[in-house]
Nucleic acid binder design. Structure first.
Length: 227
DNA sequence: ACCATGATCCGCT
DNA sequence: GCGGATCATGGTT
C-alpha cells in the first residue's frame, strides 16, 4: 500500500499498516534508515490522547491532515515522535514506539550516546569488545553496545533520529528532513500483535498498540502484555 | 499535579 | 537476566 494512502486513514487503521514501513532521516552526518516495528494509535475520542482535550498550541499538528509530524516533550527530558494521519480537523496520530536500525547505525549510536574519542561505540559493538573503560562506563557497557537498545522505545527512537527539540512538530514528511517509504510487502495479519498501550492511565485496556510478532527490536515491555 | 520515558539500582533466580 | 522501585527534570493545564 502507498504511504500516502496509509496517511489518510484513521489512526487505528494506520498504526498496524505503518509496521514494516521504513523511516528515513537526513542529517549532516548521513541518511538514517529504520524499519518501524511498534506503533500506538491515538485519537481525539480517546481519553489517553493528547488531542482528547481539544486543540492547543502543542497538539495543533494532530488536527492537521495526515503526513505531518507531531513531536512532543515529556517527563522533563524526553521527546517522542508521532505520524499525523487522517483528515484535517480530526485530532489523531500514530506514536512511533520502536524501530529496527538499518542504515546510519553509527550516527544513531552517536545520537544516543554522544561521539567518543578513538574507537566508536559502534565499532566496539561490531568487535564485541569488552573494553570496560570506554568513557568511564563499566557495568552498562554491554547495554550501550547493543544495537537493539538504539530505538526500542519512543524516546530512544526519537533520540536515535537526532531529534532534540519540537521544531519538527507540524512539519510535513516531505523528503527533505524526515520521510517514510512503504513496506516492501504488506505484513500478514498473523505477524501483527495488538495489545494495550504502554505508560497510560486512561483507556488502559484498549488494544491500540501494535508490533511485529517476535521482532527483536520492539520495546521491552512485551511480557506484560502479550497474550 | 500530571505526565504516550529511560537509566540505574537492588534483590532475586 | 529480570522485575520492581526510584528518580531525573520541565512543559502543559
Amino acid at each position: 500500500m502507498k504511504i500516502q494512502e496509509i496517511l489518510t486513514k484513521s489512526s487505528l487503521e494506520a498504526a498496524p499498516l505503518l509496521l514494516g514501513c521504513y523511516l528515513y532521516r537526513k542529517l549532516p552526518d548521513g541518511i538514517l534508515k529504520l524499519k518501524i516495528v511498534e506503533t500506538e494509535a491515538y485519537h481525539q475520542d480517546d481519553p489517553a490522547s493528547h488531542s482528547f482535550r481539544g486543540m492547543t498550541t502543542r497538539t495543533a499538528p494532530m488536527f492537521e491532515e495526515g503526513g505531518r509530524l507531531y513531536v512532543y516533550f515529556t517527563y522533563g527530558m524526553h521527546y517522542c515522535v508521532n505520524i499525523v494521519v487522517g483528515q484535517k480537523g480530526v485530532g489523531e496520530a500514530v506514536l512511533l514506539r520502536a524501530a529496527e536500525p538499518l542504515e546510519g547505525i553509527e550516527v544513531m549510536f552517536n545520537n544516543r550516546y554522544g561521539p567518543v574519542q578513538g574507537p566508536t561505540l559502534y565499532n566496539l559493538y561490531n568487535q564485541h569488545i569488552t573494553d570496560t573503560n570506554v568513557r568511564g562506563l563499566t557495568s552498562h557497557i554491554s547495554g550501550i553496545t547493543d544495537i537493539k537498545n538504539l530505538a526500542n522505545g519512543p524516546a530512544k527512537l526519537t533520540q536515535a533520529l537526532g531529534i532534540t527539540d519540537t521544531s519538527l512538530s507540524g512539519k510535513m514528511l516531505n523528503g527533505s528532513s524526515i520521510w517514510l517509504e512503504a513496506a516492501k510487502e504488506p505484513l500478514k495479519a498473523s505477524d501483527i500483535v495488538a495489545s494495550p498501550r504502554i505508560g497510560i492511565k486512561e483507556a488502559t485496556q484498549m488494544p491500540w498498540r501494535f508490533y511485529i510478532k517476535d521482532n527483536q527490536f520492539v520495546s521491552k515491555y512485551n511480557k506484560n502484555h502479550d497474550g
